[in-house]
Design a protein around this nucleic acid. Sequence first.
RNA 1: GCUCCGUUCGUCUAGUGGUUAGGACGCAAGGUUUUCAUCCUUGUAGCAGGGGUUCGAUUCCCCUACGGAGUACCA
Length: 502
Amino acid sequence: MKSNIRVRFAPSPTGPLHIGGVRTALYNYLFAKKHRGKFILRIEDTDRSRYIKGAEEYIMESLGWCGIRVDEGVNEGGDYGPYRQSERKDIYSKYASMLLESGWAYEAFDTPEELEILRKSHEEKGNTFVYDAKIRGKLKNSISLPADEVSRLHSEGVPYVIRFKMPVNEDIEMNDLVRGNIIVNSGTLDDKVLYKSDGMPTYHLANVVDDHLMEISHIIRGEEWLPSLALHVMLYRAFGWEMPSCAHLPLLLKPTGKGKLSKRDGDKLGFPVFPLYWPYGETASGYREEGYFPEAFVNMLALLGWNPGTDKEIFSMNELIEEFSIDRVGKSGARFDPEKARWFNHQYMQILQVQKIAAEYVKIVGNKGYEIDIKRASELVEMVRGRVDLISELWHQTDFFFKGPEIYDEAAVKKRWKDDSPFQMQELRSVLKAIISFTSDETEREVKKWIQENDYGMGDVLNAFRLIIVGELRGPHLFDIIAFIGKEETLKRLDKGLECLS
RNA sequence: GCUCCGUUCGUCUAGUGGUUAGGACGCAAGGUUUUCAUCCUUGUAGCAGGGGUUCGAUUCCCCUACGGAGUACCA
């Protein structure tokens, strides 16, 4: 392993960052930190037509939310900048020329329209058109055309692209840290465009040049890049550069059906596919807004395609960094399970510091039009955290702490409001009124004593009481509820309940 | 179509040339409980198929099937 570990996450700003992308970023980050290396964020915006405003910021905010800290990048700076490919145009042009000079590339004057026609006609015959070694001699390029014709086209300013001149028949050996050795014959590969007629490089050229110039030691990226690895290997060879090690991560698959996870699946099955809410154009929900903790989100993603080889499932970021290893990244695609995502969040709901959860909870309460201080909020969170998965579910477990019931659940009334109830609740009111120290323990002791002395049914009394306090048959320990809302409010709700239900 | 990659319970996965194939989610049952949950216990279910190699294959090799990705002047 190289002494200086440098990895990059290289998204293109074409929309919100998918959780598969976040996982790629995470694995890069874990690997970098594990080896005390650098995590670089490079923006691959060479396709100007697909550029979406706000996407770059979205990517950075997403990484930030996850706790993935960028060492070098557009915002952070660094010695290998610029970190936005659109700002490195002249660099690519220089390297494309080098390939032209060394004979590893050639200029092609075929227009997109001409190629489209060729594709169509091949399709009609049931074939696929590929711009490769077999056919390049018959097309319009600096290999097939005489030199004077090429210079004439140049002088006329005819646009052209630069294509890689793939060797005719050569076994290309590659090594992938996840998959081992792979051999592909160059004869099955085409002459990929390296440099577009608009003066921008394609991904293939840009990533190779940048990875080399930025001294990237390990390429960790999605499996969708595996088919173009052979091209990249050849490009390194053409430049005479040493190839970084690479690892191709398995895909994230949709929960049901076929194919990779897409935005559609989230919409259909009701779970987010993105870390944060995406506010532009066709909006999309995010894990943050749905009530997930970044810790849980990261933990869940880390285990989708990687495992520590032990039964341990709950990992802090530091533990992940400590334990992460590419050796233990799986080969096969991982189907995303929204249920398990909730389960992870439930775990964090139990183990995270109560103040941390309460801070989020205070905001929710505020949005609902109430106020609560962090101390009282912490008490409530402590009371109900075991009952919820998501932060956003906290409110439904605590709304009745802020306001007494307006209406009483019909089914609950039918089931729990008996003939004896009015009388019992009236008596209960007196019992409670007499209690000086209105704590949970004290009220519970006194009320239960009263129930036993009178030989009432425990369930009858307490469920009717709960109905009056909450309005429904739900919520945490009843005596905790009344202790929290206080004696005055408890008696008030009893009065109102007696009035409405009798 | 072609190229490449993959395949252990429904899902995420551990695992080994000889194991009762382990864990987690989910689901089911039981327990705890004033409600609803939580929680605890138990259970449920798997080596894609076919050939080899071998004393013995889930494990190694081949084929098939299935799944996935790529096949753009997109990344």
